[in-house]
Design a protein around this nucleic acid. Structure first.
Lengths: 225, 225
DNA sequence: CTGGATCCTCAACGATACTG
DNA sequence: CAGTATCGTTGAGGATCCAG
């Protein structure tokens, strides 16, 4: 058997090839963050608490070699470096969404010391908005805050867009605590969610039901434990 | 920052949770093999050339703790141990299919020393058969051989089933060489496929066009290089 | 023979310090 | 800001050995 000391698996198989690219530690989260939008090195470091800087540098280099990321040293007054995903990496979105949905279905309470980042919350809401036909035709903007993460989601004519950061003049601000996962699971209605402290609402609270009808990630029916 | 020496990522995020389970080396291929059907320890070793035995043992233990695999020590004359996926692991299938399709779209020639295993070929054909409406109503059985791997696929009334091993009385046997990937990509018609040596056919060769109409994994339009 | 466990070596990762 | 450099530790790779 040849040198298996590398990241390769020695199988001519699509899943094995995908695992060679994405199976390295931290890589999948780097791609997740970059799929939200172009990011600088320091943005990535901040969005991935705990990643060693040399590992981030290695991964970005590998992702560049694999054709998933391009490094743009943009000229001008702002001479910062920006990493941007390629079209080939965009093709990963549906697969990562499916993986994320699977993982979220097995997720209840956050473990001690777990963060919620902007990028992870964007991903969670994106996934939660899939396969649903949002109600209402009027455009609605939500701002969702979970811990230190802030994202905004706009729902208009069946189109859902989720972006990091606060929304401009959101119709409803939902501030979630540790129990926010239950809200996406749909096991709490508005009153219960507020009563249990899972969320605080600010703005047009009547929109909360619409939010739940639009964004949903049920718990897996087949969870161990 | 807490102990990142473990497999965890410290993020309350579905994708991060999935990566903690599946991101370990070899894990995703172990799950792939077990999704084809229950397997013994030695079957898994044989289907994963290059995996160290202690790593396989560790991964199976972790998968058991994560609720993806159960270890069945079946009694009786055959006292072998069998590993079987749980319902929770079955829920991974669509996500792994999507990942495998992405990886396969970026795959052209096999690298030197790469194997094709039964399980990987089952996966490839399963993925290739998705999103297609197979022609004909009559039941057709194909046997596909690529290198040492042999699988059989049955197409009947729009239902496709793929299983490892030779088929019983297949209507068409397709023996593929290194160029077999081109056949699934649909860039070769029957004559060209045979002429270039990509495949050898045995049986009702007129079914080859149906095979290609049923099983397809196009190359990504946005490949680097 | 199956189903592992043990041992050793080396590459990869984690943490931190440092530099253009 | 965007990384390199260094170093200690963990985990993978490879061979062998052992128990039922």
């Amino acid at each position: 058997m040849g040198d298996m000391r590398t990241r390769e698996y020695g199988q001519f198989c699509g899943l094995a090839r995908a695992a060679e690219v994405l199976g390295q530690r931290w890589t999948i989260l780097i791609v997740r963050d970059l799929l939200v939008g172009p990011r600088r090195y320091s943005d990535l470091l901040a969005g991935l608490p705990g990643i060693p800087t040399n590992v981030l540098a290695s991964r970005l280099k590998e992702l560049e070699e694999d054709g998933l990321v391009v490094r743009e040293a943009r000229a001008g007054s702002d001479r910062s470096v920006v990493y941007r995903v390629t079209a080939r990496a965009e093709e990963l979105r549906t697969a990562l969404d499916a993986l994320g949905r699977w993982g979220a279905a097995g997720m209840r309470e956050p473990r001690e010391g777990e963060f919620v980042t902007d990028a992870s919350l964007v991903g969670s809401l994106r996934v939660a908005g899939q396969g649903r036909t949002p109600p209402r035709r009027r455009q609605v903007t939500y701002e969702v805050r979970v811990g230190p993460a802030v994202v905004n989601a706009t729902v208009a004519r069946g189109e859902i867009t989720v972006a990091p950061g606060p929304g401009s003049a959101p119709d409803l601000v939902i501030s979630g605590g540790p129990g926010f996962r239950d809200v996406l699971a749909g096991v709490l209605d508005a009153d219960a969610a507020v009563a249990t402290g899972a969320v605080e609402l600010s703005g047009d609270e009547s929109l909360f039901a619409d939010f739940q009808a639009t964004f949903s990630v049920p718990y897996s029916a087949t969870l161990a434990l």
